[in-house]
């Protein structure tokens, strides 16, 4: 049984059908990447997993239980955490306060342990823990967003375009940490990316989404070698 399995999910924004029957699975311990162009519905899929917007049809199972109609805050409590698109940290709160916000739905007994673990992954955050979130650089904000998501002790981490607007060096660093989170801490990662090259190299398995449908799937290496993928998503740059 896969940790997360999505079958036949349709999602609508009003009359617009953003997801047209998506099927996919994420196994425990994997890094799975979803790549696709702007507007393909990648972020919508992540949001649908969290219950906002709701799937109009189809089912979403997490850890063997149906979460298609579960309240968003309950979904998070079951062990899914999301670092949303555009980072969305709390700008006027300090780094530490941001991390505390992430821990709200976790068992408070683990707070210090989790905090130290996040600080180990991102030593920069420890240096800046009393700084306001809004004063951090883009890369640091992304680290904070990931760190904040980790504070809820998730089994599945959803990352929505962590490389957005970041310098290549920083992107490398972030992806490195994502691999570390997966390997050392055993957190399953579902990564949505436009930066296909890095994402595919990192991923165990990957899906390609085009206008609300999964068109291609395979291991990361397979997709990297795939001509269609190369033409559509890897053209020109190895970011």
């Amino acid at each position: 049984m896969a940790l997360l399995s999505i079958s036949g999910v349709h999602t609508f924004y009003g009359a617009i059908e953003a997801l047209k029957g998506v099927d996919m699975e994420v196994e425990e311990g994997e890094i799975v990447t979803l790549i696709g162009a702007n507007g393909a519905g990648k972020s919508t899929l992540l949001m649908t997993i969290c219950g906002n917007p709701r799937a109009a049809r189809g089912s979403i199972q997490f850890d063997g239980r149906d979460i298609t109609t579960t309240a968003t805050n309950q979904i998070i409590r079951r062990g899914i955490a999301q670092a949303p698109e555009g980072r969305r940290i709390f700008p006027r709160m300090t780094v530490l306060e941001n991390l505390q916000m992430g821990a709200l739905s976790a068992d408070p007994a683990y707070f210090e342990e989790d905090l130290n673990r996040v600080y180990e992954l991102f030593p920069r955050l420890k240096e800046r823990q009393i700084q306001r979130g809004g004063t951090l650089s883009g890369g640091e904000q992304q680290m904070l967003a990931i760190g904040r998501a980790l504070m809820s002790r998730p089994r599945l981490l959803l990352l929505d375009e962590p490389s957005l607007g970041l310098a290549p060096m920083i992107v490398k660093q972030i992806f490195h940490v994502v691999a570390e989170i997966n390997e050392k801490q055993g957190v399953t990662v579902f990564l949505v990316e436009q930066n296909a090259f890095h994402a595919l190299r990192l991923a165990h398995r990957a899906y390609v989404m085009v206008t609300g449908e999964i068109t291609l799937t395979g291991t990361g290496q397979e997709l990297l070698a795939n001509e269609e993928v190369q033409a559509a998503y890897l053209e020109g740059g190895h970011g």
């Binding site: 969290c50 805050n73 309950q74 949303p84 709390f90 916000m101 739905s105």
Partner: peptide, 24 residues
Amino acid sequence: LPIGRAWEALREDDVACQSLGINR
């Protein structure tokens, strides 16, 4: 308290609050 912190988080970013499992 966490509830007060959650109020401030709500002011800062509504969407992020939801993604953190806060019952808005």
